[in-house]
Simulated scan of single mutants.
Amino acid sequence: MESAPALPSQERRRDAAATRRRLLEAGRDLFAEHGYERTTVRTIAERAGVNQALLFRYFGSKQGLLTEVLAQGGLEQLRSTPPEELFEAALRSMLTRSAVGAGDRTLEVYLRSIGRGDETAGTLRELGEEYQKALSGLSGTADGPLRADLAMAWLLGIGMMRTVVAREPLADADPDEVCRLVLGALGHLWAAPERGCPEESGEPGERVQEH
């Protein structure tokens, strides 16, 4: 019985790239839906339609796949989104809970992956730094990095309450309404003067000196 002819090297590379992409997409969706611990190598491979041994060949481990899912999704959003649209893009992607196999789910994966090993922690820190750099110039102030961190903390808090804790009414709130309220308030964060504390401005709320 004759054996099947070997695939040309270019075709083998194309097949390998397609398999790798399917594993990344399957891992992204399952990590976002169920979290790292509840997602198994077997379920990832089944959703990708490949043998689970290929996950280890291309990523080394489930942890390695998670790290690449986070890096790929976060960096793609940074590359494709202007800084002034970045916060809203991340917020909407989380609020709309993208359908399986489509859209960006980096924030959902991020929220369910905090604390997952040194390798992933390093990727999370790097992504956080890149997002901070992108957002810190929006205010045009010297304390831009602080404002960027505050915006990111709010974004992650909203994501945690909506997708992980599933607290009502936020869990089922209309995405457009959430964006309207959050982005309106965020505009004040970017526009606030650098020195606006009541103690310095003399506005209502100034601390009263005791006699």
Rank of each mutant, 00 (worst) to 15 (best):
Arg20Gln: 04
Thr19Phe: 00
Ala173Met: 11
Glu130Lys: 12
Phe87Met: 10
Leu183Glu: 13
Arg47Val: 04
Ala17Asn: 11
Ala192Arg: 15
Leu189Pro: 10
Pro169Phe: 15
Leu127Tyr: 02
Met160Asp: 14
Val164Tyr: 10
Val109Arg: 05
Gly35Thr: 01
Val164Thr: 11
Gly205Ile: 07
Met1Cys: 08
Met152Gly: 01
Glu85Gly: 08
Thr40Tyr: 00
Pro82Ser: 14
Ala18Gly: 00
Glu199Lys: 08
Leu55Cys: 01
Ile44Cys: 02
Leu70Asn: 09
Ala102Asp: 14
Gly196Trp: 09
Cys179Thr: 15
Thr96Arg: 13
Leu189Lys: 07
Ser80Asn: 14
Glu129Gln: 09
Ser113Phe: 00
Phe87Leu: 15
Thr81Met: 11
Ala6Met: 04
Leu111Ser: 08
Thr106Lys: 01
Asp104Pro: 14
Cys197Val: 03
Glu37Leu: 06
Glu37Ser: 02
Leu65Trp: 03
Glu194Cys: 04
Val69Lys: 01
Gly60Met: 09
Glu203Phe: 12
Glu177Cys: 10
Glu85Arg: 15
Val182Glu: 10
Leu156Ser: 03
Leu55Glu: 02
Ser201Val: 13
Gly140Ile: 07
Arg42Phe: 08
Thr141Met: 10
Ser3Lys: 12
Leu75Met: 14
Thr39Ser: 01
Glu126Val: 02
His34Tyr: 07
Ala134Glu: 03
Arg162Tyr: 10
Ile114Asn: 02
Ala171Asn: 01
Glu177Gln: 14
Glu130Ala: 13
Glu37His: 00
Met1Ile: 09
Leu66His: 10
Gly49Met: 05
Ser61Glu: 07
Asp104Asn: 14
Glu88Asp: 14
Glu206Trp: 10
Leu170Ala: 03
Leu7Glu: 07
Leu86Ser: 14
Pro193Ile: 06
Glu11Leu: 04
Ala71Cys: 09
Ala99Ile: 04
Asp149Tyr: 01
Ala4Phe: 10
Val165Trp: 09
Met1His: 08
Arg21Leu: 11
Thr141Cys: 02
Val164Arg: 06
Val165Asp: 02
Ala153Arg: 13
Ser3Glu: 12
Val182Trp: 05
Arg180Asp: 13
Arg147Trp: 08
Gly115Cys: 05
Tyr58Ala: 04
Leu186Gly: 11
Glu129Asp: 10
Pro82Gln: 15
Leu127Trp: 06
Ala16Met: 05
Arg162Leu: 15
Lys62Trp: 00
Ala45Tyr: 01
Ala17Pro: 00
Asp172Cys: 08
Pro145Leu: 12
Arg207Val: 05
Pro204Lys: 04
Arg162Phe: 11
Thr163Asp: 06
Arg207Lys: 11
Pro175Ala: 03
Gly27Ala: 01
